[in-house]
């Protein structure tokens, strides 16, 4: 049982990374990939792993929507203001925004099947709909994250200023009810 409990733990991103918000985004993306990996493992079993299922359910319910707000309300508008026409960022951001809307819809479908598995104490393999729903979600996430890591974050590193980074880190913290990561400690 100890190992099953351990399988449920989703490591949070260390809050110190809020001082380096672009690294925070990379770390969040790593977590998203980890969630997808775990989902695909759980998809292949009829055994009920309550902790693992609950952790993923919670992630999809809370962490993913906040991450999307981080990007939609902070990072993307900032890039729209800072990027140069030659960066050709608009089409990429426009496409990613569309994908964010789909992510929320797909995540809801995954949550529904996980909630069913939790309430009936069964594994995801017991449900015929789970494969298509989860595989679709995971492949879309993988593609989406690859684009953000390969295009958006590298451009952000070039265009976003030190003062932008500080303000971004403060906003990510405020959104999570965390203290200002740049506040001087007495």
């Amino acid at each position: 049982m100890a190992s099953m409990k351990k399988s449920g733990v989703l490591e949070p991103v260390p809050i110190e990374l809020l001082r380096e918000p672009l690294v925070w985004f990379f770390a969040e993306h790593y977590r998203h990939r980890d969630v997808c990996k775990r989902l695909l493992v759980l998809l292949d079993t009829v055994d009920h792993d309550a902790d693992a299922l609950q952790a993923i359910h919670d992630f999809l319910e809370s962490d993913l929507p906040i991450h999307i707000i981080d990007e939609e309300d902070d990072l993307f508008p900032l890039l729209r203001r800072r990027c140069e026409p030659d960066d050709h960022i608009e089409n990429v951001l426009g496409m990613l925004s569309g994908e964010h809307a789909n992510d929320m819809h797909d995540a809801q479908a995954v949550r529904t099947v996980i909630a069913k598995a939790i309430s009936e104490e069964r594994g995801l393999r017991c449900y015929s709909e789970s494969r298509s729903v989860i595989e679709h979600f995971c492949s879309a996430q993988k593609r989406h994250i690859a684009m953000e890591n390969a295009v958006v974050l590298p451009i952000a590193r070039i265009r976003i200023t030190e003062s932008d980074l500080q303000s971004l880190g403060q906003r990510l913290a405020a959104r999570r009810g965390l203290p200002d990561p740049f506040a001087e400690t007495p």
Partner: peptide
């Protein structure tokens, strides 16, 4: 028009 999502 570069934004595919209406809410975006």
């Amino acid at each position: 028009d570069t934004i595919t999502d209406f809410e975006g």
